[in-house]
């Protein structure tokens, strides 16, 4: 059962991500990416990393893809992307070589056979239970730092995306100013 699920998920994920990486249409690419994220969370579930799967589902296929969809409103998404591609041979050669090297590294006999699990949490508890235990004891400071970083990123996003809105607001204000209205009438 696990074998069937793994192969189904991995074939679907690879296909969807190939569509994302090589599609001409932004909407197709985004939809394929969102579907691939959902399937990756399925992969986490069959791995036994339940909490990570839930986070992947909520954050990636929920928040990040919604953010992309909102950003898409500013771009012309229905038009096909015209790309002047340099000869694709060198790209496929380079990524193929890197794939072969990565597979060779990962499939090689393990060097670290005597690795001991240091951070295990309570033995026999559920995965979300153990994650919470470790996150709020050993990884508390990185957790807080990540929270501050998310806040900073949120403020930066608001400031960056709403720069022009500020200008149009000031224009409305100037139009309503009685002195400028009087000057306009004199002209």
């Amino acid at each position: 059962m696990e074998t069937v699920a793994f192969y189904l998920f991995s074939i679907l994920i690879t296909g969807l991500f190939l569509v994302t990486a090589f599609s001409r249409n932004i909407l197709y690419a985004m939809s394929a990416l969102a579907a691939g994220m959902v399937l990756i969370s399925g992969l986490f579930f069959i791995m036994g990393a339940d909490f990570l799967g839930a986070v992947q589902l909520v954050v990636y296929s929920g928040a990040v893809m919604a953010l992309y969809a909102f950003g898409m409103m500013f771009f012309d998404a229905t038009r096909d992307v015209k790309e002047k591609n340099s000869p694709a041979g060198i790209v496929f050669l380079l990524s193929g070589i890197s794939a072969v090297i990565l597979v060779a590294i990962f499939a090689a006999p393990k060097i670290g056979e005597n690795i001991k699990a240091l951070v295990t949490g309570t033995k026999g508890a559920d995965n979300p239970h153990v994650i919470g235990e470790v996150l709020f004891t050993k990884y508390l400071v990185p957790f807080e730092v990540a929270a501050v970083m998310l806040l900073v990123a949120m403020i930066a996003g608001i400031v960056l995306a709403s720069k022009k809105m500020d200008e149009s607001l000031s224009e409305i204000y100037i139009d309503a100013d009685p002195e400028t209205v009087a000057k306009e009438e004199q002209k």
Binding site: V59, L67, G71, V134, L135, M149, V152, A153, G157
Partner: peptide, 23 residues
Amino acid sequence: LSGQMFALFIIAIAASEVAVGLG
């Protein structure tokens, strides 16, 4: 569990990267 913690923080960093990058 350290690996899953790292994956968790990678997801948080990816979310903030998308927010700033889209802006």
